[in-house]
Design a binder for these strands. Structure first.
Lengths: 142, 142
DNA sequence: GTACGTGCAAACGTTTTGCAGCGGG
DNA sequence: CCCGCTGCAAAACGTTTGCACGTAC
């Protein structure tokens, strides 16, 4: 096995992930992919990801963060969660699932699949089809 | 019975509504209340309401539209529906209910209460309590 | 009369865009 | 080598705010 480049062992995995999505494997995208997909499911805003990315040696501009999040989203690597008027959230968990939203600190929490079950859901009105079903449970401090 | 002011017969109804909410009955608020509550349940954005208000004789500034929507919301006369990243929706239907969202034209449609039933919903995590449960079914053109 | 509402314009925070230069394929 | 990506700054967008004036009570 070849010696890994300084960007870390995960590089080749992330490299493949980007290539499969039809995206060029630039330094910034590899680094962001590593932050996003390197450690389980995550919910990020541009601001959060920018803060993390800024801590790494590699510099990234906020514009690139936005561009990259949008590209990853279009490429199907991320889901968008519309839950807060003030910022966009992206979720690395691609399965249809639902969320708690803690209003006091703008934090998103996955609802465990076996804790929720939908009852009867309506058919889409004539001329439309259902794209997705999203359940949001807003939480306040007890 | 006294002769009604030129603002129309509904004025006294709206006047009471505002007074009960602890809001002063200004010309603008009465006009906006009439647009919002005068004809069944509605889903409005600031932009939509501004367009309608501008058509009436009475002038209103966009800032007043925003202020008024927020005040009505705080006073409990409107519900906020977070469903679109680009604009805030307000709903005159105060009951907990759910929505279709037509992505192609950013339109909100109420889901009839008897067409939907929730199954098992999770308890709020420790330290929190459920504030609201919102189901959004996103629609695309068939 | 006075506290609150309104209108305007300017400020705000988030997100997008135009463009010159860099770098992956 | 070329086209796409990056960074920066500027623009765009919906929304909020500061202040002078007007008005409900």
């Amino acid at each position: 096995m070849a010696i890994q480049p300084p960007t870390g062992q995960q590089s080749s995995v992330m490299r493949e992930k980007l290539q499969q999505a039809g995206l060029r494997t630039t330094k910034q995208r590899l680094m962001l992919a590593h932050l996003l997909f390197g450690s389980g499911n995550r919910h990020v805003t541009a601001e959060i990801l920018y803060a993390e990315a800024s801590k790494t040696g590699l510099g990234v501009s906020l514009a690139t963060i936005y561009n990259t999040l949008n590209q990853f989203h279009e490429a199907g690597l991320l889901r968008e969660v519309i839950i807060d008027q003030n910022r966009s959230y992206f979720d690395t968990n691609l399965h249809e699932h639902h969320h708690f939203f803690v209003e006091s600190d703008a934090r998103l929490i996955d609802i465990n699949e076996d804790e929720i079950s939908l009852g009867q859901m309506p058919d889409a009105p004539d001329g439309f089809q259902t794209d997705s079903i999203q359940v949001v449970i807003r939480l306040k401090d007890a």
